[in-house]
């Protein structure tokens, strides 16, 4: 019990519900709080503790032992006021780490002022990712490191298939570093159906080959990655 991370999720909309669910699957001890009885009932069989309560009341939060949590996630999405109030209360109670969801940039600024340690903008971030994905369908995922550098997962260009990293000379030619190769390994499942599993080769060697259907996770300047995608 002691080494399990204790995380509280306040507000069980789609965002909070899914975070609580995944954290629980990842063996964290999760406490979920929401005003809505229905939502609590829905989540109660998949997570450790689910409590129907009003998180804007300080006494309630104290009674639930919020202070002892490693992380508290404020996922309230219905009203800015409630989300700001709860974040403030958590900060005053001395919670170690507060992660709060912002509805817009002004909300984000206020959350920062009242003491959230990390602010996330799910809608804005998702929109950026979607836009990027629609423009360049070869991009599977992207993490922006700075305005100029990104880590991007792309389908391996056709011209790379069957060659090694050294043969392609990726770094010299494209100025990007391959940090992982994901390849698909065909398998037969227990029920006799064909399928494949993904094998991730992290920090690949120069002599590692890029097989058909592989994707590459590359790190580099955004403009050079764009060049790589087109090849």
């Amino acid at each position: 019990m002691a080494d399990k991370k204790q995380i509280a999720v306040i507000g069980l909309g789609t965002f909070g519900y899914n975070i609580a669910k995944v954290l629980s699957q990842k063996k964290c001890e999760v406490l979920a709080i929401d005003k809505d009885e229905e939502r609590i009932r829905e989540i109660s069989n998949i997570i450790t503790h689910a409590v129907q309560a009003d998180a804007t009341e300080e006494r309630t939060l104290q009674a639930l032992g919020i202070k002892k949590m490693d992380i508290v996630i404020v996922g309230i999405g219905t009203g800015m006021e409630a989300s700001i109030l709860v974040t403030l209360l958590l900060k005053e109670m001395g919670v170690k780490r507060i992660v709060a969801k912002a509805l817009n940039s002004l909300h984000g600024k206020i959350l920062r002022k009242v003491g959230a340690d990390k602010i996330i903008f799910p809608e804005r971030d998702m929109a950026l990712r979607l836009a990027e994905g629609l423009i360049s369908p070869n991009i599977l995922d992207q993490i922006e490191l700075s305005p100029y550098y990104s880590i991007v997962e792309i389908h391996a260009p056709q011209s790379f298939i069957g060659k090694t990293i050294r043969e392609i000379d990726i770094r010299a030619k494209y100025g990007v570093t391959v940090i992982a190769i994901k390849k698909k390994q065909p398998i037969v499942t227990k029920s006799g159906e064909t399928d494949f599993k993904e094998i991730v080769n992290i920090s690949p060697q120069p002599e590692d080959e890029i097989s058909e259907g592989a994707s590459l996770v590359v790190l580099g300047k955004i403009e050079t990655i764009t060049k790589l995608k087109k090849d």
Binding site: P137, H155, K184, E193, T194, D195, F196, E212, G213, S215
Partner: peptide
């Protein structure tokens, strides 16, 4: 059809 699907996916022909 399933087997064709899985083969196309393995080739990244989404």
């Amino acid at each position: 059809y399933y087997n064709l699907g899985i083969t196309y996916e393995a080739k990244n022909m989404i």
